[in-house]
Amino acid sequence: MTSPSGFRDRTNWSGGYYELAIEVGSSDDARIQACLSALWSAADIRGCFGRRDREPEEQDPVPCTVGSLTEFGDLLGQVRLPTGGLVVCGCGAIRGGDDSSDWLDFYVPVGALERAGLAHWDGRPFFRSDVMDEWLAAIGAEVFQSASFGLGVIGFEVSGCTDASALAGKLPQTRDVGYLLPRGDVLRYGAANT
């Protein structure tokens, strides 16, 4: 059986992504860099690589920088899940330009989660994991202590599902995804409740 931490196995990268998407704010490399550095540390990601077609030991690490994000599209590593399994993970940036916010998107592929034996689904029509939600919320809270952000969204392929301006500082009553919403210096977590 192939390991869920192997880069070359395409099935590890399949099935979509469970994400912590962070709305960093206006286009500013320094803000994205601060969030990226804080995220890599908070999640305790092993390595920082630019290629999926080589195992970590077969490639040189790349700097964990905005420049590397620009060059490679995604930065890749391995992360230990709260259940103990080591899996592949990645991080990408969605640059908004002048009109909208920049986002930093930390993700763990569903293929790797399934191979690591993470329980999910619970009869719902989409991937949901309370274990992953709580873990990603804790990572987001730690990032916020070092690098404040406008919004964090947690769940299956959540990147772009909303933004801080649409929420206007209020957590939705009914939540299909988890929210990390700042109010001043305090970060509130609204877990998914559907």
Rank of each mutant, 00 (worst) to 15 (best):
L39F: 04
L39C: 02
S41F: 15
A43R: 06
A43W: 14
D44I: 15
D44E: 15
D44A: 13
I45T: 02
R46Y: 07
D53W: 14
D53I: 05
R54N: 04
R54K: 07
E55L: 08
E58H: 09
Q59M: 08
D60H: 05
D60L: 11
P61I: 00
V62S: 00
C64M: 13
V66Q: 03
G67Q: 14
S68Y: 04
L69R: 01
T70A: 14
T70Q: 11
T70Y: 15
E71D: 10
F72Y: 11
G73P: 00
G73F: 01
L75D: 11
L75R: 04
L76S: 05
L76C: 04
G77V: 00
G77E: 01
Q78D: 01
Q78W: 04
Q78N: 13
L81D: 12
G84M: 03
G84F: 08
G85H: 04
G85N: 12
L86H: 01
C89A: 15
G92T: 11
A93L: 10
I94N: 08
R95F: 08
D99M: 15
D99S: 13
D99A: 13
S100Y: 07
S101C: 05
S101E: 05
W103A: 04
F106W: 03
F106K: 02
F106S: 00
Y107K: 08
V108G: 02
V110Q: 12
V110N: 09
G111R: 12
G111Q: 10
A112V: 13
L113Q: 11
R115G: 02
A116W: 06
L118H: 10
L118R: 03
A119K: 13
A119T: 13
A119L: 13
H120P: 12
D122V: 09
F126N: 06
F126Q: 10
V131D: 15
D133C: 03
A138K: 11
G140F: 01
E142G: 04
F144Y: 13
S146G: 14
S148A: 14
G152R: 03
G152V: 02
V153W: 06
V153I: 14
I154A: 00
G155S: 05
G155P: 09
F156G: 03
V158T: 10
C161G: 03
T162C: 08
A164V: 05
A164S: 08
A166Q: 12
A168V: 08
